[in-house]
């Protein structure tokens, strides 16, 4: 077996855990990163995911999981600080830059991501994606939003309902 204790004696190497995606790909990450997921955190605190055992994630495929972990690894140091006190403006700017870049992805990936973030209870990621989706539809007309989010064109019946709605909530369209 590879020597797990390759660290500097006192603390040793960071604890690693293995996550297994729905398509059976194994991902080895630091426990601190995986612990951004409230769901995983409990398992990891109980000592799960180490050694040969992995934590199976039947709802998350490998493409999504690698993306999720990319986020977790980036955000883990900040989360470990427990709060803002030690974060410099540079750190924050860097995280923000990363976040912006991170969600600059295809819609289907956004969808998988927000579902995964929800299942794994990674609040920051869920908010990040939700905000991205909100940005995508911000300032668009209803028809443009429909197209952006991939709704089919409205049936005449739906159109009638919309018109009725616009009458009822006229104040929002003033």
């Amino acid at each position: 077996m590879a020597a797990p204790e390759s660290g500097d004696g006192n603390n040793g190497a960071a604890r690693m855990v293995t996550l297994i995606s729905s398509d059976n790909t194994r991902f080895e990450v630091e426990a601190a990163a995986a612990s951004l997921s409230q769901t995983l955190q409990l398992t990891i605190l109980d000592g799960g995911g180490g050694g040969g055992d992995g934590i199976p994630l039947p709802n998350v495929d490998s493409a999504t999981l690698s993306k999720v972990l990319e986020y977790c690894i980036k955000h883990a140091p900040a989360a470990a600080n427990g709060g803002a006190p030690n974060a410099t403006a540079v750190d924050r700017a860097e995280l923000e830059r990363f976040d912006n870049e991170f969600v600059n992805i295809d819609q289907s990936v956004l969808y998988s991501l927000i579902m995964a973030a929800h299942n794994l209870e990674i609040e920051g990621l869920q908010s990040l994606v939700a905000k991205k989706v909100a940005d995508m539809i911000k300032g668009k007309s209803p028809m443009e939003i429909r197209r952006t989010l991939g709704f089919p064109d409205p049936t005449p019946e739906e159109q009638a309902e919309m018109n009725a709605h616009m009458l009822e909530y006229g104040w929002a369209y003033e």
């Binding site: 819609q107 289907s108 956004l110 969808y111 927000i114 579902m115 929800h118 869920q126 908010s127 939700a130 905000k131 989706v133 909100a134 940005d135 539809i137 911000k138 300032g139 989010l149 991939g150 709704f151 089919p152 929002a172």
Partner: peptide, 24 residues
């Protein structure tokens, strides 16, 4: 593929909408 975002569960959709100005 495009349809999927529109297929988000209600609570996630609400989360998305919570980032929009209310009037939107």
């Amino acid at each position: 593929v495009a349809d999927r975002l529109s297929g988000l569960p209600d609570h996630l959709l609400q989360h998305v909408l919570s980032f929009l100005p209310s009037i939107r």
